[in-house]
Design a protein around this nucleic acid. Structure first.
Length: 783
DNA sequence: GAGTTTGAAACT
DNA sequence: CAGTTTCAAACTC
C-alpha cells in the first residue's frame, strides 16, 4: 500500500526533477547543510591565512560567487585553456576580479591551469565539496591574487575535511600554493594593480588600491620628493575604489615631474589592461618567468623590463623596479657616459662590452640578477670598472655597482647617470638632479660629476665613489677633467682620487683599488696598474688580498641596519649599529680626524676598536655617544674631554657601547651617519672613498639609499619608514663587524649587491605582501 | 705645494 | 699574534 503512495509521490518528484525548473533549482541550491558547515570551516581555515575582512565579505558572497565562478570558470576555463599559452589569460582571469576568483585560481596556476580547470569543473558538478573550496578560493582570490586558491579546490574536494580540521593546513596549503601564489602575489604587487584597476569596477579596487599604494610607495621610495608628496596625497585621497582614479591621476602628475616614473605611472594608469595583456602576449611566457625571477631579484627585473621594454611597457616590474631601474640606468648611463665621453682610450674592450650591454641590452640589468652575482663574488667592491671589462663581469660590475654602490648612487649618481639615461627617454632625474644632468651632459666632467653627487650625497658618500667609478672610467679615457682637487673644498673631494706613488695602486693603500674602482685621470698616481688595461693584474691582486682577508674589499663600515640583527639594537638605535668592520687603532687622533676610519666612515667606535683616547663624535668606544651626527667637532671637543674621563671606564663599557644604540643617538642614523659623514667632513666633505664604497656596498638597499640620499632631498618621512623597512641591511648580516665567521659570509654574500637588492626587494615585498592581503580588503572597506 | 702627522696595510 | 715597515691619506703650514 504504502509503496504505491510513495511511488506516486516519488513520481511526481521525479517529474519535478525532470522539469527544467527543478533542475534549475537544484542547481541553484545544491548546497547541503552539512556541506555548508564545511564551507564555514574552510573559511575559518582559510581565514587564518586570509584576513577576516575578506572572510566576511566573501562569506556572504561566496555562494553567489561560487555560482558565478562556476559558470565563469567553465567559460574562463575554456578560455584559460585556450589562452593558457598566453599569460594574458592569467591576467584576464585576474582581471575578472571578484567574480573571476576562480579564474584567478587558474591564473594563479597558469602552469597547471589545465588541472585546476578540470577540478573546478568537477567542483561545479559536485557542489558540496567544492563549494567550500570555491568559497574559500574566492576570498583568497580577493585578497591574494588568487594564486593559492587554485590548488585548494582540488585538495578540498578530496580532503576538504582535513583542511577543515587542520587549521595549519590552510597555511600549508597556502604555503604550497605560494610558489605560484608568490609569483602571483609578487606579480600581483607588481602587476595586479593594473589588473585590479581593470577590476576595480567590479570589486571596488581593493587590489588596485593596495597595489597602487605599494607601487606608489615604491615609486616614492625611489623617487624623490615629488613622488613622495604625490604618494602622501594619494594616501590621503586613497579611499577605495574611487580613489584609484585619483591615484592614477596623482601618479601621473607626480610622474610627470619625474621622467621615468612618468612612464611607469602612465603605463600603469593608462594602459593597465592593455599593457598587461599586451605585455604578456608579447613577452610571452618568458616574460613571466623573467618577472617572477625578478621578483626574486627586483633589480634584474627592473633592468630587464625597462631595458627590454623600455618603450612603454615597463609595466609590471617597473613599479617596483623603478627605483632599481633608476639605479641600473644610472649605472648604465654612467657607463655610457663614460663610454661616450671617453671616446678613446684603453677601455676599448670595456667600452665595446659595455656598449653592448648598455645599449644593446640596456644596461646590464638582465644579466645581473643571477649571473652577475656569481661573477661578483669577489666581493663587494670590486673594481667595478675592471669587472666591466670582463665578459661576464660586465654584468657583475654593474651589479656590483648597483648593489654596492648603487645605494649611494641613488640620488646623486642618478643625476649623472640620468643624463645618460636620458637617451633612453628615462628622465629619472628629479628636478634637482636635472641640473646635475645638464652639467654632466654638458661637461661630463669628472670633477663635476663628483661634485654633483656630492651635492646630493651630502650624506651619501658612497654615491660619490660610485659615481666616480663610472665616471672615472670615463674620465680616464677622456680626459682630463680633473676634478680632483677641485674639491678640496669638500664635496669635490669625494671625487678625489688616489695619489699613490709606490703601491702601483694595487694595494689597499690605494683608495681607488680598495674601493674597487679603476684609477682615473683625476688620480695622480704613478705607475698605476689599477686600470682596465691591467685587468688581469688587478684581479689577481685582488684575489691575493682577498685570500688574505676576505673582507678586505668589503665595506669597512657596516651600517646600522646591519647592526640591527647583530647588535640587536632597536631600529631607533640603528645608527649605533653602524660600525667599522675592524675597528680603528687610533692613538693620537682621538678618533676625531679622518685618520680614524671609524670617524671617517661616520660611525662610532666599537669594542672592536683598539683606539686610545677615543673621542669619536659618532660614538665612542665606550658607547657614549655625543651628538654624533651633528655633534660636530666642536662638540666633540667637549665630548673629547668627557671622553677622556670616560675612557677609563670605557673599556669595561665598551662592549656594551659598541653595539649599543646609545651612541647611535647621534650616530644612529647610521644611515644618517652617512649624511653625517659629510658633516664632519663637511669641511672637506669628501667621504672617504673606501668608506663610501663600503658603505655603498653595504648600503645596497634601496632603503638606505633613500635615506642617505634623502639627506638633501629625501624626505624625512619616507626615509624613516624606508629605513626602518629596509634595514635591509643585509649587509649587516653579511658583514658582521669583526667576527671572523661573519667576514667570510659577508664577503661572498654581501658582496653581491645583488643580494642586497634582493633583500631589499624582498623585504619590501614581504612587508607589502602581508599588508596587501590583510590591509587591502580591510583597509579599503574600513576606509 | 711641500712637509708633517697619522694610522692602515703590508710585511716579517 | 706582535712588532716593524711601508704607504698614502689627512692635515698643517
Amino acid at each position: 500500500m504504502d509503496t504505491p503512495d510513495r511511488s506516486k509521490i516519488n513520481n511526481p518528484l521525479s517529474q519535478f526533477e525532470d522539469s527544467p525548473v527543478f533542475n534549475y533549482i537544484s542547481n541553484l541550491s545544491p548546497i547541503e547543510p552539512v556541506k555548508s558547515v564545511h564551507i564555514t570551516q574552510t573559511f575559518n581555515s582559510l581565514s587564518f591565512s586570509s584576513p577576516p575582512s575578506v572572510f566576511t565579505s566573501p562569506h556572504v558572497n561566496c555562494h553567489r560567487e561560487s555560482r558565478f565562478l562556476r559558470r565563469h570558470n567553465l567559460l574562463d576555463a575554456s578560455k584559460a585553456k585556450a589562452s593558457s599559452e598566453d599569460i594574458n589569460n592569467v591576467y584576464s582571469c585576474e582581471k575578472t576580479p571578484a567574480d573571476s576568483t576562480q579564474p584567478c585560481h587558474e591564473s594563479s596556476e597558469p602552469q597547471e591551469n589545465t588541472n585546476p580547470n578540470i577540478s573546478i569543473r568537477d567542483a561545479s558538478i559536485e557542489p558540496h565539496d567544492e563549494n567550500p573550496n570555491i568559497s574559500i578560493e574566492v576570498p583568497q582570490g580577493l585578497k591574494y591574487n588568487l594564486a593559492s586558491p587554485g590548488f585548494e579546490p582540488v585538495i578540498c574536494a578530496d580532503e576538504a575535511d582535513s583542511l577543515l580540521e587542520l587549521p595549519g593546513k590552510p597555511g600549508s596549503d597556502v604555503a604550497y600554493v605560494p610558489d605560484d601564489s608568490e609569483k602571483d602575489s609578487i606579480e600581483g604587487e607588481m602587476h595586479p594593480p593594473a589588473l585590479c584597476q581593470t577590476e576595480e569596477k567590479i570589486e571596488g579596487s581593493n587590489c588596485g588600491v593596495d597595489d597602487l599604494i605599494n607601487e606608489a610607495s615604491d615609486l616614492l621610495m625611489f623617487s624623490p620628493p615629488n613622488m613622495t608628496e604625490a604618494f602622501k596625497d594619494i594616501n590621503k585621497q586613497l579611499n577605495p575604489s574611487t580613489k584609484l582614479t585619483n591615484l592614477r591621476t596623482l601618479l601621473r602628475q607626480s610622474a610627470t615631474n619625474d621622467g621615468q616614473q612618468m612612464h611607469i605611472v602612465d603605463t600603469v594608469a593608462s594602459g593597465s589592461e592593455h599593457e598587461i595583456e599586451n605585455h604578456p602576449c608579447e613577452s610571452g611566457a618568458a616574460t613571466d618567468t623573467v618577472q617572477r625571477q625578478d621578483k626574486h631579484n627586483n633589480v634584474a627585473l627592473v633592468a630587464n623590463n625597462p631595458i627590454e621594454k623600455v618603450d612603454d611597457k615597463l609595466v609590471y616590474v617597473t613599479h617596483r623596479g623603478i627605483r632599481r631601474r633608476c639605479l641600473d640606468f644610472e649605472m648604465a648611463s654612467v657607463q655610457r657616459k663614460n663610454l661616450d665621453g671617453k671616446s678613446n682610450t684603453n677601455s676599448s674592450k670595456e667600452k665595446s662590452e659595455e656598449m653592448d650591454v648598455s645599449k644593446g641590452k640596456q644596461l646590464l640589468p638582465i644579466k645581473h640578477s643571477g649571473d652577475s652575482r656569481k661573477c661578483v663574488l669577489p666581493g663587494i667592491g670590486l673594481h667595478l670598472n675592471a669587472l666591466a671589462s670582463l665578459n661576464d663581469c660586465k654584468n657583475i660590475k654593474i651589479e656590483t655597482l648597483l648593489s654596492g654602490r648603487q645605494p649611494n648612487l641613488p640620488s646623486s649618481s642618478s643625476s649623472l647617470q640620468l643624463s645618460a639615461s636620458q637617451d633612453h627617454q628615462l628622465s629619472l632625474v628629479p628636478t634637482s638632479v636635472e641640473k646635475d644632468l645638464e652639467q654632466s651632459e654638458n661637461e661630463v666632467q669628472p670633477g663635476e660629476d663628483c661634485t654633483q653627487p656630492l651635492v646630493h650625497m651630502s650624506g651619501e658618500d658612497c654615491t660619490q665613489a660610485l659615481v666616480h667609478m663610472p665616471g672615472e672610467d670615463f674620465q680616464q679615457n677622456s680626459p682630463k677633467k680633473k676634478r680632483r682637487r677641485l674639491e678640496p673644498d669638500g664635496e669635490g673631494e669625494s671625487c678625489k682620487r688616489c695619489n699613490c706613488k709606490k703601491s702601483k695602486c694595487l694595494k689597499l693603500y690605494c683608495e681607488c683599488f680598495a674601493a674597487g674602482v679603476y684609477c682615473i685621470e683625476p688620480c695622480s698616481c704613478r705607475d698605476c696598474f689599477n686600470k682596465p688595461i691591467h685587468v688581469d693584474t688587478v684581479l689577481q691582486t685582488r684575489q691575493q688580498i682577498e685570500s688574505r682577508n676576505p673582507l678586505a674589499f668589503a665595506p669597512k663600515v657596516i651600517r646600522g641596519s646591519d647592526s640591527v640583527p647583530e647588535i640587536g639594537d632597536d631600529p631607533n638605535k640603528t645608527p649605533a649599529s653602524a660600525r667599522h668592520k675592524r675597528g680603528c687603532n687610533c692613538k693620537k687622533s682621538s678618533c676625531l680626524k679622518k685618520y680614524c676610519e671609524c670617524y671617517q666612515g661616520g660611525v662610532g667606535c666599537s669594542i672592536s676598536c683598539r683606539c686610545e683616547g677615543c673621542k669619536n663624535t659618532y660614538g665612542r668606544k665606550d658607547g657614549s655617544v655625543h651628538s654624533g651626527i651633528e655633534a660636530k667637532p666642536e662638540e666633540e671637543t667637549e665630548a673629547c674631554e668627557k671622553g677622556v674621563m670616560e675612557k677609563a671606564s670605557h673599556k669595561t663599557e665598551t662592549q656594551n657601547t659598541e653595539d649599543h644604540p646609545d651612541h647611535a643617538l647621534p650616530t644612529t642614523p647610521l644611515r644618517l651617519s652617512r649624511s653625517l659623514i659629510p658633516l664632519p667632513f663637511s669641511s672637506k666633505g669628501k667621504p672617504p672613498r673606501s668608506f663610501v664604497t663600503t658603505i655603498s656596498s653595504s648600503g645596497l638597499f634601496v632603503s638606505q639609499k633613500l635615506g642617505k640620499s634623502s639627506a638633501p632631498r629625501s624626505q624625512p618621512k619616507f626615509e624613516m619608514p624606508l629605513q626602518t623597512v629596509p634595514d635591509d641591511d643585509s649587509p649587516v648580516t653579511c658583514i658582521k663587524t669583526s667576527s671572523p665567521n661573519g667576514k667570510r659570509i659577508s664577503s661572498p654574500n654581501c658582496d653581491v649587491g645583488s643580494s642586497p637588492t634582493r633583500r631589499g626587494g624582498r623585504k619590501l615585498i614581504l612587508q607589502s605582501i602581508p599588508s596587501f592581503p590583510s590591509l587591502t580588503p580591510h583597509n579599503l572597506r574600513s576606509d
